[in-house]
Computed example of a mutant assay.
Amino acid sequence: MPIGAGSSLHFLVGPTIAFVALALLALFMRWAFGTGYGRSKPAQEADDGLLTRVATLSRRESALALRAVLSDAGIRSTVRCPAPHRADVLVFPEDAQRARSLAATFPGG
């Protein structure tokens, strides 16, 4: 068959289909893996998991100092900073009573 030099644009069909497929794939990827910019964040309740909060301090450094005091007493603990100017000290439930008594005497609390 001879190739017509007229208005035949069949050579554009392949690249057009490929471009449309890539554009649709890019849109799907943006939707599926996007950051959700512009959407409101759902209200999150703090989940302490297996740990119990024994103190909430206004500075992370104070919370780390309390954690050192608890560590010296043999109590395993961790610090969580859920918001600016807020640091929670968390311990395991079996150590919570001793940790609260130590936190009550802590000068930074």
Results as ranks from 00 to 15, higher is better:
Glu61Gln: 11
Arg67Leu: 13
His85Glu: 15
Thr52Asp: 08
Glu45Ser: 11
Gly4Met: 08
Arg86Leu: 12
Pro93Ile: 01
Ile75Tyr: 03
Pro2Ala: 07
Pro15Tyr: 05
Gly14Asn: 09
Gly74Pro: 02
Val69Phe: 03
Ser62Glu: 14
Ala63Ser: 06
Ala43Gly: 04
Leu50Val: 12
Phe28Ser: 09
Thr52Lys: 08
Phe106Glu: 01
Gly6Trp: 14
Ala103Ile: 08
Glu61Cys: 03
Arg59His: 15
Phe33Trp: 02
Arg67Val: 00
Ala99Cys: 07
Val54His: 04
Ser7His: 13
Ala46Cys: 00
Pro107Phe: 04
Cys81Ala: 13
Ala46Trp: 12
Cys81His: 05
Ala55Lys: 00
Asp47Met: 01
Leu102Gln: 01
Ala23Leu: 15
Asp95Ile: 03
Val91Asp: 02
Phe19Glu: 03
Ala43Val: 14
Arg30Gly: 09
Ile17Leu: 15
Thr16Trp: 11
Lys41Phe: 05
Ser101Pro: 01
Gly108Tyr: 03
Ser101His: 11
Ala104Glu: 12
Arg98Leu: 10
Gly36Cys: 00
Val69Pro: 02
Ala96Pro: 03
Phe106His: 09
Ser101Cys: 08
Leu25Tyr: 09
Gly109Asp: 13
Asp88Phe: 13
Ser101Trp: 09
Asp95Phe: 06
Ala55Trp: 06
Leu9Met: 10
Phe11Asn: 08
Ala103Phe: 06
Lys41Val: 12
Ala32Gly: 05
Gly38Met: 00
Ile3Tyr: 13
Gly36Ile: 00
Ala73Arg: 02
Ala46Val: 10
Thr52Asn: 04
Ala65Met: 14
Leu22Asp: 01
Ala99Trp: 05
Ser101Gln: 15
Ala21Thr: 15
Leu51Val: 05
Ala43Cys: 08
Cys81Val: 14
Leu64Met: 12
Ala73Asp: 01
Arg39Leu: 14
Ala18His: 02
Gly34Lys: 10
Val79Met: 05
Gly6Val: 07
Ala87Thr: 04
Arg30Asn: 14
Leu50Arg: 10
Ala104Ser: 14
Tyr37Pro: 03
Met29Thr: 09
Ala43Asn: 07
Ala96Val: 00
Leu70Val: 00
Ala21Asp: 11
Val20Ile: 12
Val69Glu: 08
Gly49Gln: 07
Gly74Tyr: 03
Pro93Lys: 02
His85Met: 13
Ser58Gln: 14
Gln97Pro: 10
Thr16Asp: 03
Ser101Asn: 13
Gly74Lys: 00
Ala103Val: 04
Arg80Cys: 09
His85Pro: 01
Ala96Trp: 04
Thr16Val: 11
Phe33Thr: 11
Ala21Val: 15
Phe11Ser: 08
Ala68Gln: 05
Pro42Leu: 12
Gly38Ser: 04
Pro84Asn: 13
Ser62Arg: 12
Ala83His: 09
His10Thr: 08
Leu51Gln: 12
Val91Gln: 02
Thr16Gly: 10
Gly38Val: 00
Pro15His: 07
Ala32Tyr: 09
Leu51Ala: 06
Leu25Thr: 07
Ala32Arg: 15
Leu102Val: 01
Phe11Glu: 09
Ala18Val: 13
Pro93Arg: 06
Tyr37Lys: 11
Thr56Ser: 15
Ala5Pro: 07
Gly49Asn: 05
Ala21Cys: 11
Thr105Ile: 00
Phe19Gln: 02
Phe106Ser: 04
Pro2Trp: 12
Ser40Pro: 15
Ala18Asn: 06
Ala99Asp: 00
Leu102His: 03
Ser8Arg: 07
Gly14Glu: 08
Ile17Asn: 07
Phe19Met: 10
Ser62Pro: 04
Asp72Thr: 06
